[in-house]
């Protein structure tokens, strides 16, 4: 396999589609996120980041939850200042939410559509790579 083929295979991996396909995962993830966000709205953080607690170094996702809460509350600028990927993850959350609540037939349609979009454009993997790059820039600059 050439480097180019490997790169294409890497980019064409479905991520959101996998979450939609496994309904239990999506549902539990959403319920947990709702509980965490609910507490976060009152300033209580129930999730302690293991990397942050242990090393004092923010992990790639540190601040994302709070930024998403700010974004949902309409404080867009504050959300983007805290974490630039908050809107992207909110959009991803909406897709996962639809995957968890839609009836089987519509969910199958959504799964196919998302999978095709992810495999043709590689958008999710590109976003995930950019996310890690953003963490590196935020951390070192």
């Amino acid at each position: 396999m050439t480097a180019m083929q490997y790169m294409l295979t890497f980019l064409q991996q479905p991520v959101l589609a996998m979450l939609i396909r496994e309904r239990n995962h999506a549902a539990v993830l959403l319920i947990a996120a709702c509980i965490l966000f609910g507490f976060a709205l009152f300033g209580v953080s129930l999730w302690v980041c293991p990397v942050w607690t242990c090393a004092g170094i923010p992990c790639p996702g540190c601040g994302l939850g709070r930024a998403m809460v700010l974004f949902i509350r309409g404080e867009v600028i504050a959300a983007l200042e805290l974490h630039a990927f908050a809107p992207v993850f909110c959009a991803g959350g909406v897709v996962v939410f639809l995957g968890a609540v839609l009836p089987a037939r519509q969910r199958e349609g959504l799964y196919r559509a998302v999978k095709t979009a992810e495999m043709k454009s590689g958008i999710t993997m590109i976003v995930l790579m950019l996310f890690l790059l953003y963490w590196g820039v935020r951390f070192f600059v």
Partner: peptide, 14 residues
């Protein structure tokens, strides 16, 4: 689960 969901796991420990 592969690299894609693995990276998601790094980003989102939850």
């Amino acid at each position: 689960q592969g690299v894609g969901l693995g990276i998601l796991g790094i980003i989102c420990a939850l």
